[in-house]
């Protein structure tokens, strides 16, 4: 990147050309190395901070396919500002190339599917959606050992009550045990937010798992 203000070789000529093309190549190489280094930067286990290892990254409603999303999103914070319930959070710089991209962490605040984030996106990395039925962020997964209605320690039904598509996405079986229907479940995470099971590591009996693929591999 450095170029002496007073070039050691006179302007014009072969040596001047070699000197300058060398400096240009060095600059380009240094910048390339810096940016590529920045892209590779992840915390050691390969899981970015905020993403839940077994469940993947839940993106806001209308997000493109993951590799296309990462290419299109300009990391501008507009969707996080638009979110009406502060459900959209942004990855920090520790997440490497995921830095600044939005994700949902439903335990604190689940998506209420107001669909304000889609129109706020300046690049359509989040597509504007018209109806809640089009949302497909992920799917709720029930842990049979933790769910009180399934493991026999009680009768709950909190997830069924919280579900905005109750009766379609979640139906109830014996002792109010939840049954998830993939066709309708949008992955909003309201069931996770209101699940009464609160394990130490913030694990609920019902959790949203992403169904997104990243170049064919589940994220």
């Amino acid at each position: 990147m450095m170029k002496a203000h007073h070039s050691p070789t006179p302007r014009g000529g072969r040596r001047w050309f070699l000197h300058h093309s060398g400096v240009l190549a060095l600059q380009a190489g240094a910048v390339w190395a810096l940016l590529m280094g920045l892209l590779r930067l992840r915390i050691p286990d390969g899981t970015p901070q905020g993403a839940r290892p077994a469940l993947g990254i839940v993106r806001p409603p209308g997000a493109l396919e993951e590799s296309e999303f990462l290419a299109t999103c300009i990391r501008c914070t507009r969707c996080a500002d638009a979110c009406g319930v502060h459900a959209i959070k942004l990855f920090g710089p520790v997440a490497g190339s995921l830095q600044g991209t939005p994700y949902l962490d439903p335990i604190g605040a689940a998506c209420n599917m107001c669909l304000a984030c889609g129109p706020s996106c300046p690049t359509e990395a989040l597509m504007p959606l018209d109806a809640v039925a089009e949302v497909d962020m992920g799917i709720a997964v029930v842990d049979d050992r933790l769910c009180v209605s399934i493991n026999g320690t009680g009768v709950c039904g909190a997830c069924f009550t919280a579900c905005p598509l109750r009766g379609k996405a979640i139906t109830q079986g014996i002792r109010n045990a939840p049954e998830i229907h993939a066709d309708y479940c949008t992955g909003c995470g309201l069931c996770e937010q209101f699940c009464i099971v609160d394990e130490r590591a913030g694990v609920r009996a019902i959790q949203v798992s992403t169904n997104r693929l990243w170049d064919g591999i589940a994220v």
């Binding site: 600059q27 380009a28 940016l35 920045l38 300009i74």
Partner: peptide, 22 residues
């Protein structure tokens, strides 16, 4: 200008909008 061209080339080739990070 070199940085701009290199950044644009990285964005085009490896589909990563890198200049936004720096």
């Amino acid at each position: 200008y070199v940085l701009l061209v290199v950044g644009a080339a990285i964005a085009f080739i490896s589909a990563a909008p890198v200049l936004g990070y720096i």
